[in-house]
Amino acid sequence: MRRLFIAAGLTTLLVTVLIVYTLVKDAVSFFIDVPKYELWTIGWFPRRGFFDIKTLVVGSLMVTGVAMLIAVPLGLGVAVYLSEFARPRVRRVLKPIVEVLAGIPSVVLGYFAISFINPNIVTVLAPGANKAFNIAAAGVAVGILTIPIIASVAEDALRAVPLSLREASYGLGARRVATTFRVVLPASISGVVAALILGISRAVGETMVVAIAAGAVGGGLFSTDPFQPGQTMTAAMAALGFGSDQVAGDGLAFQSLFFIGFLLFVLTFLLNLLGDRLVRRVREEY
């Protein structure tokens, strides 16, 4: 039996090795074959030989930025409330509801972005915004997806702070606000930062919301306007991989899929590693 269990454990290592191998192999051959000037041009049109990486990176950053604008205040607010202010009974009811939010499939939120968020929120606040698809609406929906992640990791960090610290603070005459923001929050700061980092990593990797709500499925010009359609790393990969696009077969356009995939993998890997390290630091301290 022992061997069987070891084999199962080794399978997970094999998965990582295969991911890295498949990504690196084609990413490298793409990078060797592509004329380098095509990596820095007017936009991302892989089938016409425009592989402007900055279009995708800036698109991903804009989506992530908007998402964090939504998810950081709401996620941290929920975490602090549930951990420091809510009565146990209230917490027992509310926490599962927040967890349900984490289970909403991203395609559903993508549709929510174009059918509700864009017409009722984004175009109302920014009248110049594209009526059908734009980065901002996609970003808000990605933010909604990220709230539960930030909330649950941050809440775990806050609750890991021992009660004795809070009691000492109360004993010195501090009230709840001072205790929360001057004692508990600083004591758990690395966990809270980890929550933000893991949230960013999730937002960068989100695909379907952006593929549905940000427009520009086949390609897009370089743009820094969050209220216009845009392309992200993930959405570009989805567009390359499905439907008529996969006919492109083994050409450069197809290989660019692996190149972006590799960039995305490295980026999220570094973020996750950092976040993970910070989470464990909180656990070790107390």
Binding site: T12, T22, L264, F269, L273
Partner: peptide
């Protein structure tokens, strides 16, 4: 780390 890899990468 695998838990944090974006789902589209698993597609590749």
């Amino acid at each position: 780390n695998l838990a944090g890899v974006p789902s589209i990468v698993y597609g590749i």
